[in-house]
Structure formats: structure tokens, C-alpha cells
Amino acid sequence: MTAFLEQTDVEAEYLLDRGKPVPSKNHSRLESRLSFLMTRDYENTYDTFVELSLELSTGKATPDLCLFKPEPSDWLEDEIRVKNTPLGVIEIVSPKQSTQDLVDKLDTYFGAGVQSCWIVIPTFKMINIFHAKHEYKTYMTGELFDEKLGIRLNLEEVFK
């Protein structure tokens, strides 16, 4: 019983802190893989951040990944909550999370000026790319192409 309470406490704390459920092994794998692929292929185009806390004009959010224009690092100054709007965000559905939870975040992202929002559904090896709340494309095989960000990814590499 103690282990269950500890697990529940950890999940509740994570949910309160980040506004989303605790990620799973597959969630973590995809977050790492997407971060690697973005850095490998688009390092000169985007700075890729994982689990960065944002304080946007439309609310607080902590996307799984977010993409910004590259800028020099300042290791003497740091930010706990970044107020700049990313160009793109990537959200990965956790096992205990509904896709509706992530669709609801689209207003926060697009209202703040985010150009592209991806919702990744690991169970179905699916990525939905939104450029507005009701404007999206679904990718399950072949090459994903985000025309707003100019990003191309082979889905076999993402979901291997």
C-alpha cells in the first residue's frame, strides 16, 4: 500500500508541477529520439529544448519539446520560465493522458503565436501537425513534412 501511495504522490506532484501526467518509457523514448533528430538535422535552424517551462501571454505550459530560433547560450544567466514564444512545440501523449488534453492546449500555443504544434500519439505511431486549431495533417508512414517550419522527418526513424 505504501508503494501505491508513493507512486500516486509522485504522479500528483508531477501533474501539478507540469500540468500533465507522468511520462512513460515510450514517451521518454520518443522525446529523446525527436530531440536527437531535431538537433542532428536542424541544429543551425532551431534550438531544441526538452520540458522547458513557458510563461506565454496566453498561459503557462511545459511542452515535451519546443523549437526556437538559435541564439547564443548565456551560461551566467538562466530562466526558470521562458517568456519568449517558441516557433514550434511538440506534445507526446502519455498513457494516462487523453488527446483532448493536448488539443485543449492548442489555444494556449496558437494564441501566443506558436506557428506549429505537433501531437504525437505513440500507440498508433502517429503525428498530427497543427498550424491552427482546426488545420492539421496526420502522418503515420513515410516522410513527415512541416511546411511552416521546413522540417522533414522519416517516420521509420522516429518510431524505430
Rank of each mutant, 00 (worst) to 15 (best):
S28D: 14
E91S: 06
Q115I: 00
P21Y: 08
Y136M: 09
Y139E: 04
D47C: 01
G19A: 08
W75V: 04
L76A: 00
D78V: 00
G111S: 15
G59S: 13
M126C: 15
T45Q: 02
F68G: 02
T39Y: 05
C117P: 12
V10H: 12
I90K: 00
D146H: 01
E77D: 13
I121Y: 12
S53D: 12
K133E: 15
L16N: 11
D78L: 04
D41M: 02
A12P: 15
M140H: 11
Y42G: 00
V89K: 02
Y46P: 00
K20M: 14
P21V: 03
F130S: 02
L149R: 00
K105G: 12
K125E: 08
D64S: 08
Y136D: 07
E31F: 08
R40V: 01
Y14R: 03
R40G: 03
R18A: 05
K148I: 02
T138S: 10
T45R: 00
P23Y: 06
L144Q: 04
I129M: 05
R40M: 08
T48F: 02
L37R: 01
K20R: 12
T99M: 15
E71I: 01
Y136V: 04
F110L: 11
N128E: 12
A61V: 02
I119Q: 05
V120I: 04
S116A: 08
L52H: 05
Q97E: 11
D41Q: 04
L54Y: 04
D41C: 01
Y139D: 05
E91F: 07
L149V: 01
E13G: 07
P21M: 09
F110G: 06
F130C: 05
T99D: 11
F145S: 08
H27Q: 12
S116C: 09
S98C: 09
E55S: 14
Y42C: 03
A112E: 14
E143I: 08
E55R: 07
P63Y: 03
T39G: 08
L106H: 08
P21A: 10
L87T: 02
R18P: 03
P95Y: 07
Q7C: 09
T99P: 13
D41F: 09
E31Q: 08
I80A: 14
I121F: 15
N128P: 12
S32T: 14
R81Q: 11
F124Y: 13
S53Q: 10
K60E: 12
L52T: 03
M140Q: 14
K137H: 15
L65K: 01
N26D: 10
F130P: 03
S73Q: 07
G113A: 14
G111C: 12
V103W: 07
T141F: 09
K83N: 07
T48I: 03
K125G: 03
E135D: 14
K133A: 13
T108Y: 15
L67E: 03
F124G: 08
E51S: 13
Q97W: 09
Y136P: 05
E55W: 06
D41L: 06
G59W: 11
T85N: 07
